[in-house]
Amino acid sequence: MTDAANPVPRMLGRLRALMLRHLYLYMASWPRMVEVIYWPIVNMISWGFTSSYLLKKVAHVEFVSSTMVIGTLLMEFFIRMNMTMLVSFIEEIWSRNLGHLFASPIGLREYIGGITIVSIIRVLIAIVPAILLADYLFGYSLFSLGPPLIPIVILLLMAGAWLGMLIVAMMLHYGLAAEWVAWMAGWSFSALFAPYYAVSVLPPVMQWMARALPGSYIFDSVKSILAGEGVQAENLWIAFALNLFYLGLASWILSRSYRSARRRGGLIQMGE
């Protein structure tokens, strides 16, 4: 049976294959599973205790404390999303499996779709324990954001996805030599997302950069909700539009980078 005769089931089968590829990997390696949930919990706990300390020492600091813990949990959606996409791709380089994958009927769009789905599932698994612990240990519940939590999480996952695509594009172009840049990319953006402070505290150039990114608008809304001032829906719409723009840009860069790798032989001999 040809692919053209049955395209949708075949495509779903290929997406299932990619998901199984990573599920099997995590099942075969318990340290990987520990790593998945370790960092979100560690980050949340360190900021949680900092918040508890501030609450005891400084009056009227409730807003700052909740912003720290809630902001940390939300930032994890963005950071873990792009990092998981990086890990999913880099696993194929480490195992010298890219040639097998891209000689199969899978296309670049399906591949990226597959690792995006895998990453979303992994992020949700990673963050749920940290969310529950934040509520149990410090009394801060992410669900206190109410229904806007859903679009906020979706927008952060979108932002993580386009950054993940840009990272994969960079790895395709530069190979493992770009690995160290790839690992720190998400953290570089976190300062500009302003999760714990107002964008206005940043230097002017960084303010301009922050306003070009969806994260600053998302966290403006979060801070507004936590301050009891409502959701600032217009900020979420701006973030959505910016995410769409960056997703389009990342897709374009990724397809160019993939083609460049095919020209240079990068899919067969990717390394330093």
Binding site: A28, N97, L98
Partner: peptide
Amino acid sequence: SPYVDLPQRLT
């Protein structure tokens, strides 16, 4: 091909 491999940790 000897230039590509299969994932080592998978069965």
